[in-house]
Structure formats: C-alpha cells, structure tokens
C-alpha cells in the first residue's frame, strides 16, 4: 500500500491512522478532560455535538492538527456514548457522517479506496470508477433512496458493484453512519467532559420538546404505513421513497400538510423549509401513494395484507370511524 499522508488523520480520525496516533501519543481520558493543550478540542467537540442536536453542520475545526482532531472526535464519541440516548446517537451519526462526506467528496479515488477499506469494504479503483464488494455496497445503499442506488439498475458482476467516485463518497458516508450507530459500552467520564454532556442533554430535551409528539387519534392503517410512522417518530433515517410513500398516504387519508410535516420533525436531517416544500408539493399534485407491487419492489411492504394499494387497506374500517 502506498504511503499515507499523516495529515489524513485530521480529516478521518476514525481510521487506523487516528488509532495509531492515540497509541503513539498515549492519549487517555484524563488527557482529554484536563490537558490544557486540548482545550480547543473540548470546545470543538461541544460545538459538534450541539450542531448535531440542532441539525446543523459544524466545520469550524477543519484546520486542527491531527492530534487535536483525533481528540475532538474521541470526545464527541465518549460524550455521546455516555449520554446513551438512541435519538442523540442517530443525530450524532448523521452529523459526523455528513461532515465526513463534505471532506471525502473531493478526495481522489485512491484515498476513497483506503477509507473504504478502513470502513470494512473492499474497494478496487478501475480508471475513473471503482468496484465495491457487494455486501458492503448493500449495507451502504440499503439506506439510500433513489432508484439509481438499487442493485437492479447497476453494473454488478460476480459480487462487485461499479460506482463513480462521487457515488463512492456517498456510500462511504453511509458506511460510517452505520459504523457510528453500533452500540458502545457506556463510559464513565471525568467531570469536565460530563459538563459538556449535561449541556448537550439540555439542548436535546429542548429539541425533543419542540417535536410535537402528540399524535391525534389514529385511523386504521396498513402495516407498512404503521412501520413508516414508527420509523419517522423514532427519528430513524428514511429513504426518499419511504418519506414519499408516508406523506402521500397520510395526505390522501386526510392529514393536513402541517401535521405530516410535524411527523418528520424527529428526522435527523429535518429541515422545516425543505420538508414543508416537499410535503406541500405532494399535496398540490395530489400524488397517490405507490401501489403494493411498487412498495414490494422498494422494500417498504412488510406483509401481504391482501390489498393492491395501501389506500384500500381497511377501507370498511375507516368508513366506520
């Protein structure tokens, strides 16, 4: 393997380069909490966590030297694990992976291939493009909306999938996101780091309160829609198709645009303006939710409930109400 620029650890602290740096410097939790030289790491870590909670993108620490960047990343992870709230974990994973993508999308293919290997994928550059091993491709693309990511529309040969450089960066973002979502044991933290955690919890509660969780009485809904609602409420990442299906269905059964938008508020990447625009657009065009065959193809269908469209499910039941 070619020699790697040690500065890459600044941008990609989660890699083995970052790990090696921690080892060689003998960095401990005490250092992270008390070392005066790491003061800016603590400040930036807090900024990154709060940005994750508010749905922003924190880029003020891009200039940090490798050791400080690795320390910042470690503090983000430690504090997030210490808080141990699944909603926060999703927000942090979303934020960190977005931040990663902002940096990775301009990297040459050789660096992306290295990052891919760091994230457990086998990536083989081939001219301007690269081959990704199928299981890794599936792990990454399963969370992505849009039919261009579906395997059936790709050049896939003997267990490898051909992707463009920019697509590779996007896939790696997903791999990092799922990597960050893996459960970690809850650490005990020195007080200065706990203080950061306390502040993050306060902001997290504010965000939670702003999500109108009260959901008016429910109609009878097909299992696929029930599942999508749960996903939305839990703030899980949803594909474009899932969001479209859910919005189109709810609008057709009489929900207002505002009520549908509220449902998406827990989404880690929620943006009021964008969500409102998209939902209103679906409402204005009067789109029907896709039929069951399409939903099966999109992997949204969860069980065969004997109807051809989610709208025909429980028709009689709905009328009774």
């Amino acid at each position: 393997m070619e020699e790697l620029d040690p500065a890459l650890a600044s941008r990609y602290p989660f890699t083995s380069l970052g790990e090696r740096l921690i080892e060689s410097e003998g960095l401990t939790e005490e250092d992270l909490a008390y070392d005066p030289l790491l003061e800016q790491s603590r400040r930036h870590a807090k900024g990154r966590l709060l940005s994750a909670v508010s749905g922003g993108l924190y880029l003020e620490d891009l200039h940090l030297p490798p050791l400080d960047a690795v320390a910042t990343y470690l503090i983000v992870r430690l504090v997030s694990s210490w808080i141990g709230d699944p909603f926060l974990s999703r927000l942090v994973a979303e934020h960190e992976s977005k931040r990663f993508h902002r940096l990775a999308r301009d990297e040459p293919l050789s660096v992306l291939a290295w990052l891919g290997r760091e994230l457990g994928a086998t990536v083989k550059p081939d001219g301007e493009r690269a081959w990704v091993d199928l299981p890794s491709y599936l792990r990454a693309a399963a969370g992505l909306g849009g039919s261009r990511w579906r395997l059936a529309n790709r050049d896939v040969r003997r267990g490898r999938v051909l992707v463009e450089r920019r697509e590779l960066a996007r896939l790696l973002q997903e791999l990092l996101r799922t990597h960050l979502l893996r459960p970690t044991p809850r650490p005990s933290l020195p007080p200065p780091l706990k203080d950061i955690g306390t502040e993050v919890i306060r902001r997290l509660e504010e965000r939670r309160a702003s999500i109108q969780s009260s959901r008016p009485s429910r109609q009878i809904m097909p299992p696929c829609i029930e599942k999508l609602i749960e996903k939305a409420e839990r703030g899980e990442n949803m594909s474009h198709q899932e969001r479209f299906t859910l919005a189109a269905y709810l609008l057709k059964v009489g929900w207002s645009v505002g009520r549908v938008v509220d449902l998406f508020r827990s989404a880690p990447d929620f943006k009021e303006r964008v969500a409102r625009y998209q939902v209103s657009h679906i409402a204005k065009r009067g789109y029907n939710p896709p039929n069951c065959e399409t939903l099966r193809g999109w992997g949204i269908c969860v069980e065969d409930c004997g109807v051809k469209s989610p709208l025909s499910y429980g028709r009689r039941g709905r009328r009774r109400r």
Binding site: A142, S147, R148, R150, L151, G299
Partner: peptide, 23 residues
C-alpha cells in the same frame, strides 16, 4: 451478516422489481 434491508435489496434485484428503465 446482511440485515433485513440488504436482503430485501437482493430479493428485489433477482425479482427485477426494483429495475427502472429510466435509470
């Protein structure tokens, strides 16, 4: 080690359900 979504993707690949001629 594939999860549910990844298996779904394989199923809709072999069954051609997610094929989109516009892509």
């Amino acid at each position: 080690g594939l999860g549910k979504e990844e298996r779904r993707e394989l199923a809709s690949h072999v069954s051609g359900l997610s094929f989109d001629p516009r892509e």
